[in-house]
């Protein structure tokens, strides 16, 4: 079972904006629908919905979390083997190998696009060496 939208939906389109796979459709100010074929269960819609109108795959209502408090991946370099799996699984393509600095040739992944990270933690789950953990973003 994927995420679903219940009748509390006001059609604000916040979820449409955040969905990385464009699985949510609906007219403004009317009930939206999540396409279960496309939904990847990242949970971003549940975290952004201000009306708590989204139910996750296990039938639990999602809680809204302030966007600035969404967790983001941090790579622990000693454990990382640079296999690139995290970059591949990221639904929003916000991870990438770091640019080469000086003569460094071993490139570690890093969060290139902090703004667009949806905190799905797919990268954390995918990492074969547990080198990624999700943390609250550091305020700059």
């Amino acid at each position: 079972m994927t995420h679903t939208i219940i009748s509390d939906c006001t059609g604000c389109t916040a979820c449409v904006m955040v969905c990385p796979v464009a699985a949510i459709t609906g007219e403004r100010k009317s009930l939206h629908v999540i396409n279960p074929q496309t939904c990847i269960d990242c949970g971003a819609c549940g975290r952004i919905c201000p009306y708590q109108a989204i139910m996750d795959g296990r039938g639990k209502m999602c809680q809204m979390v302030k966007r600035s408090l969404w967790q983001q991946p941090v790579v622990s370099q000693p454990n990382c083997v640079s296999c690139g799996v995290c970059i591949q699984v990221c639904p929003t393509s916000v991870l990438d190998f770091a640019e080469r600095v000086d003569h460094q040739v071993h490139l570690f992944p890093y969060l290139k696009d902090e703004k667009n990270c949806i905190g799905c933690s797919f990268c954390e789950a995918a990492c074969p060496t547990a080198a990624i953990h999700m943390e609250l973003p550091v305020m700059h």
């Binding site: 083997v81 640079s82 296999c83 690139g84 460094q104 040739v105 071993h106 060496t129």
Partner: peptide, 10 residues
Amino acid sequence: KRKYHCRGCP
């Protein structure tokens, strides 16, 4: 100065 890994090597 630092280690060098091939892709996916612990």
